[in-house]
Write a protein that binds this DNA or RNA. Structure first.
Lengths: 380, 380
DNA sequence: ATTGGCACTCACTCGCCCCGAGTGCCAGGA
DNA sequence: TCCTGGCACTCGGGGCGAGTGAGTGCCAAT
């Protein structure tokens, strides 16, 4: 997913432009000039990419459109501003950068950021001080709720952006224990404990059942499903009631129904937010977008979509601007990573910020935090 | 707390200005002119208050400083603008209103809002449509978490402001049931269920104990504390271990310790937020304050302080601007109410918005929601 | 006590000009 | 073929000044 810039890759890419590849793609159709030039001098492409990288870096740090003169001053590119201007014109024609208005500097487009992330940057590792701070802070957590709430605060603080952490998904966890407690003869409390530390509980009203029946049920139910994935539970308990005498059936049916309900509960996909105050640091840049962004953040569904499909643990995903798929988030990017125990992804966490963010740093932080959270879960 | 404007009250207040009373107070010290004039014609005060009320109402709806001419046009005060100007000058001298700059209209001060809330307005009851919507929405909740999350969304939607709801306090709840479950001989799960519907759980590592001991413990523990306030639990379990044979003491001690820990757990004071996106509706007015406000909202401690000490259920509390006690919230007001079951306050809920808010409407909404939530808890 | 009249204040808007950063193009040189 | 210096052009933004109008405070009259 993340490849540092390497000469070999650039060359290879040039020689083998696969259709559909967004990187330096599309030139097949419309820009013969550039296509030709690339064949003739590899250095030209190199420099052009270097210019794009410089533009992204400068824009991210200054937050102002960057011009050709400033660029040669800040980076030793070894050519004159005029040359850079030519490169910029080409980059603009290909859609990687954009001019807010004539006589202004250039700003990267979503496509430009995409290229930057894919090819022109690498994940920046955290300093050892930061790593040990993460370790110390997360290590103090006492239970799952605490791990999650600490994580979200930590991410928000490190990246100074909005942090989003998803609770370990029930469906991807396994059953550690099921407990049945008869509060009264006709009121049973069902407690489900997963190997990711989640504890879900629910009351069940039934016809009265005896203590011994409850004990029997508890033993058989545990024997049946402990150690199995929650996703397998429905099929395993399918004919569970058949083992019991007829008069207990209604009670068992409602118990099983409650169990299944807990498992598919929509609340299973809980998401925790933190650092929304960081949004205001950007209001100078896009003052009109903070409203839509806050609205999107209040929608659990949107957040879940942003966190996206689970990928492998510690696989970083970056969604830039329109790639998020939401109108209101066209000026924001989302960096996410799966996290989990035993190399198994149980949920996602990530960070949301302006498209003009420090991608290498943010990616480094998200990836490091995801790794540590996974480690913490392993210990539990 | 909330008194509608009544002639009798105004007259009584005039005749008996208690020291320390903020309403129309302070004039004892510095404004003999006004003090005298009040004695001479009660109608004067009446109109002056009417002017203040009109200013607050107009300012809340237009969000712009209101001038004397506009005031006589929109309200039939029966006098000329010049007269109103005199009243305004007096009100300003007493600190109830304020002029952003010369040749601008007047804006209420915090003190002005305070007087408005205390004497010039009454809680506006919700429409029956709104009431039935609340009923339907809250009635669909399945458990405590759901009640809380629905409540916060509901409040945010009705008032179009930021909603804050506190979980029922553990210390003010009573024990409904304690369950001990031996997951393994040396690992016991402790589950505490309160009459407010909260379920707290915790694992305890002990020396191995037998099933029968656990059952015995469970029975005695329940007998000892069920029905009692959590705040009484510590003293009640103080010498609990004495009843048991010596070899079980270590296990019982760790169990009791875990129980106490659950009760005093700082997490007991959980607060849920909603509707932060509504903050952006005011950014035209105080664009610089939204940052500090978001920061304050992220601080659990600040929120808890804002929700404040418990008062009786359905007793409304209004904190205006600086009264919140936080620098960053000097332009916001907080309207809160206790809620609970059986007329017993178990927690607070409320709304946070700009000082220039619709107090009667907001107070009506908060009070209605608090009442309904209490009713829902009663049913559980 | 209230009112109409009057002079005064001052934020805000608009048009104007100027400045300078930044561009695109072109012709000459390596 | 690519790079470079030069040059004309564009245009956003800041600064300035006049005009406008809402709103005020004061005063003399009722």
């Amino acid at each position: 997913m993340i490849r540092p810039l390497q000469e070999r890759e650039v060359v290879g890419m040039r020689e083998d432009p696969r259709p559909g590849d967004t990187v330096f793609g599309e030139s097949r159709l419309g820009e013969p000039r550039l296509a030709d030039s690339r064949v003739e001098d590899p250095r030209l492409d190199r420099r052009r990419l270097e210019v794009l990288r410089a533009i992204v870096q400068d824009y991210v740090s200054t937050q102002e459109p960057v011009g050709s003169k400033a660029l040669v001053e800040r980076h030793n590119l070894g050519v004159s501003p005029a040359t850079i201007r030519n490169d910029m014109a080409a980059l603009e024609e290909e859609g990687y950068i954009h001019q807010p208005h004539t006589s202004a500097g250039r700003v990267p487009t979503d496509k430009g950021y995409r290229l930057f992330v894919d090819r022109l940057s690498s994940v920046k590792p955290l300093s050892s001080a930061e790593r040990s701070a993460i370790h110390a802070f997360l290590g103090g957590a006492v239970d799952l709720d605490d791990v999650i709430s600490r994580t979200v605060r930590l991410l928000a603080q490190i990246t100074r952006q909005v942090a989003v952490v998803q609770y370990p998904s029930l469906s991807r966890s396994a059953v550690r224990h099921v407990e049945l407690v008869a509060i009264t003869p006709s009121r049973i409390m069902l407690v489900l404990i997963t190997d990711t530390g989640r504890v879900e509980q629910r009351f069940v009203e039934t016809i009265p059942v005896s203590e011994t029946t409850v004990a029997d049920l508890r033993a058989r139910l545990n024997a049946l499903i402990v150690g199995h994935r929650l996703s397998e539970v429905p099929s395993r308990v399918d004919d569970f009631a058949d083992q019991f005498p007829h008069e207990d059936r209604p009670a068992i049916d409602s118990l099983v129904a409650a169990l299944l309900e807990v498992i598919v509960e929509q609340r299973e996909e809980r998401v925790v937010l933190g650092g929304t105050a960081n949004l205001t640091r950007f209001r100078q840049d896009f003052p009109d977008t903070i409203g839509p962004v806050l609205e999107a953040l209040e929608e659990q569904m949107v957040l879940l979509k942003l966190l996206g499909e689970s990928t492998g643990p510690s696989t970083l995903t970056v969604r830039i601007g329109h790639e998020t798929g939401y109108e209101g988030l066209s000026a924001t990017s989302v960096v996410t990573s799966g996290y989990g125990r035993d190399g198994d992804t149980v949920a996602q966490l990530g960070v949301l910020g302006p498209t003009r963010m420090d991608y290498p740093g943010t990616m480094g932080a998200v990836s490091a935090v995801a790794r540590y959270v996974g480690r913490i879960l392993d210990q539990a």
